[in-house]
Amino acid sequence: MTTSPTVAAIRTEGRLLAREPIALFWIIGFPSILLVLLGLIPSFREESAELGGQSLIQLYVGTLVLLSMIVAAGQAMPEVLIGYRQRRVLRRLQTTPLGPARLILAQAVVYAGAIVAAAVLCLAIGRVAFGAPLPQAPGAYLLTFLLALAAMLSVGAVVTAVAPNPAVGNVLAMAVLFSFMFTAGVWLPVQAMPDTLAQVVGYTPMGAATEALNQATLGEFPDLVHLAVTAGWTVVLSLVAVRTFRWE
């Protein structure tokens, strides 16, 4: 019985994530619970002309899909990887055929899996409990989802790369968490923001992703500018991460 090293690493990191109930709660449970709580507010379920005939809760489905990404890729994963570097796990793996890069890949795969689970749960709850439509343009939705995921993973990579120790990493991750929650529309959906603010937020990775997810939900192909903003951030942040990353 032989397993490829990468597959074995993914399996191991998956098991290890399964042993972190608190992280799993924030990644998978919390967005769905928030969706349910917001959905219980009657006014959130009312369709609004100002929102183009959508209800607030419909907009929140996409935002909360992104929230899971922000928590997983922007906070949980960097903390684990900074810990691995601090504990010299990455250095240890440099002396094996696996190498540290494939451990990081395994981490990304595992967190992506958790994020997909959270997204499916949010979409299902939105549909079943609050009648929010499933994505009408599933291909465009998936494309946007993947671009947003790549953007968040690159944000997490930058946090991991520049944090000299777990304490600083924690501070950076918290800063990412709150600012990205805002731009994803957790406090106020981007579509409900005043125009000027919405325009500025639209140039952030999560702001653009929120707009694009909403368009794909309504069955439109997202504006290219939203996709380009999300992809552009990914390219820039990935370069920064690669330039500044330290294995030890």
């Binding site: 191991t12 972190e20 504990r87 796990v89």
Partner: peptide, 12 residues
Amino acid sequence: IQLQEAQLQEKI
């Protein structure tokens, strides 16, 4: 190689 002070994942 067995490295000084290199650890593993906490919960492995």
